[in-house]
């Protein structure tokens, strides 16, 4: 078995169709739309892009998000498993990671496996078929770095941080909608994710204790991934964002206020860039 495993080779059954960030960003449609159809009236029911039960498409949006969570958990499972496999136990230098970190990654693999189980059950409960929506493989891409410290930054802090934001939103949705399972399950998964983020924060500090340059590279990489995982501003503190930064849970997971503020700024930047890109594409399209 190879030491490092490329994202293109992730094994899936025939129900799954994969896509990547470039393909997703090539879709220039925006939720607000542009022409005169029913959307104006419909969106007027909800003052934000947030997933709330008063949206006309609440259940379908929740189904899509839950499927996204499920495939994200599959990739997180694969990523944790690969980190347990790819690096020998050692002192943390070079291609090695401490034995205890390997154990933590194996533990995370179990947690992620449970999350796949939970989200598959919830998907069935919500009437979603496995593979019904396309799978964006961006999460595993962040887990592919050859430097284990970058994996910690990209996966445990950025990806699992995103999971905290998404699960918080889904938990609230389940609570408001009165869904007895959704709120219950998301609460459990949220507890695990806070643990994973904290684990990442702790190990990142520990492994780079005597290597400030490596630490700053890792934090830089985390910012890149955080911006990527903002999905063009879909996550952020603004009303235009579909889901919010879960500040309280991020604090529990070891993020400082400054770090959360930085993520919020990155989200805003991503939203502005996405809007500018859509405007440019629409202008080019109109000119043709």
């Amino acid at each position: 078995m190879r030491q490092f495993f490329p994202v293109e080779d992730l094994a899936r059954d025939e129900r799954f169709v994969q896509t990547n960030m470039a393909e997703r960003m090539a879709d220039t449609r925006v939720p607000g739309g542009g022409s005169q159809t029913s959307s104006k009236k419909a969106s007027s029911r909800s003052s934000t892009n947030r997933l709330t039960p008063d949206r006309h498409d609440a259940s379908d949006r929740a189904r899509g998000l839950m499927h996204g969570i499920m495939v994200g958990e599959i990739q997180a499972l694969e990523g944790a498993g690969r980190t347990a496999h790819d690096f020998d136990a050692g002192d943390g230098s070079g291609d090695t990671i401490p034995f205890a970190l390997k154990l933590d990654m194996a533990r995370q693999a179990w947690d992620e496996a449970r999350h796949v189980e939970i989200s598959a059950k919830l998907s069935a409960w919500m009437g979603t078929e496995i593979g019904e929506f396309q799978e964006n493989t961006v999460l595993f891409e962040a887990a592919c770095s050859n430097d284990p410290v970058l994996r910690l930054a990209g996966v445990n802090r950025a990806l699992e941080g995103l999971a905290i934001d998404v699960f918080t939103q889904m938990k609230e949705f389940g609570d408001l909608a009165g869904d007895p399972y959704l709120e219950f399950c998301e609460d459990w998964m949220l507890a695990d994710e806070v643990t994973h983020v904290k684990m990442g924060s702790d190990w990142l500090r520990k492994v780079t204790e005597n290597d400030p340059e490596r630490r700053s590279r890792a934090l830089e990489f985390q910012q890149v991934v955080d911006k990527l995982f903002s999905f063009g501003g879909a996550r952020g503190d603004t009303a235009e964002s579909s889901f919010q930064l879960a500040r309280r849970f991020r604090e529990l997971a070891g993020f400082t206020d400054d770090e959360v503020d930085t993520i919020a700024e990155l989200d805003e930047q991503a939203l502005a860039e996405r809007k500018a890109a859509v405007r440019a594409m629409n202008a080019a399209s109109a000119a043709n």
Partner: peptide, 11 residues
């Protein structure tokens, strides 16, 4: 009449 500018699914 199809609104292709939005990925939403209102009918």
């Amino acid at each position: 009449i199809v609104d292709e500018a939005t990925p939403l699914a209102k009918l």
